[in-house]
């Protein structure tokens, strides 16, 4: 199993928002990747954006630019 590292996790209210985030980050070459929401954050299903802990401001900027808002933003071992 892959070594776990501390990551910034952004969750969204809808799957569509998570997918819009992926597209926006890709277009803007913003860091991160789409992953299933880690179990440590939620027992439910869903997709989340995962990036380095230092990417908080960059990601906030991306979300602002496409008019979506995160449900939560937190750090956890992924």
């Amino acid at each position: 199993m892959r070594e776990k590292r501390l990551q910034l996790i952004v969750t969204f209210r809808t799957t569509a928002d998570a997918m819009a985030m992926e597209q926006a980050c890709r277009e803007r070459k913003a860091p991160g990747r789409l992953i299933p929401v880690p179990r440590a954050i939620s027992a439910g299903c869903g997709l989340a954006w995962c990036a380095g802990p230092d990417c908080r401001e960059v990601l906030k900027g991306v979300m602002q630019s496409i008019g979506i808002q995160e449900e939560d933003m937190c750090e956890c071992m992924v």
């Binding site: 892959r2 799957t15 990747r33 789409l34």
Partner: peptide, 12 residues
């Protein structure tokens, strides 16, 4: 998107 998530989860 689901397939990507599946493969990622597989590594975990």
């Amino acid at each position: 998107a689901l397939m990507k998530a599946f493969i990622f989860a597989l590594t975990r």
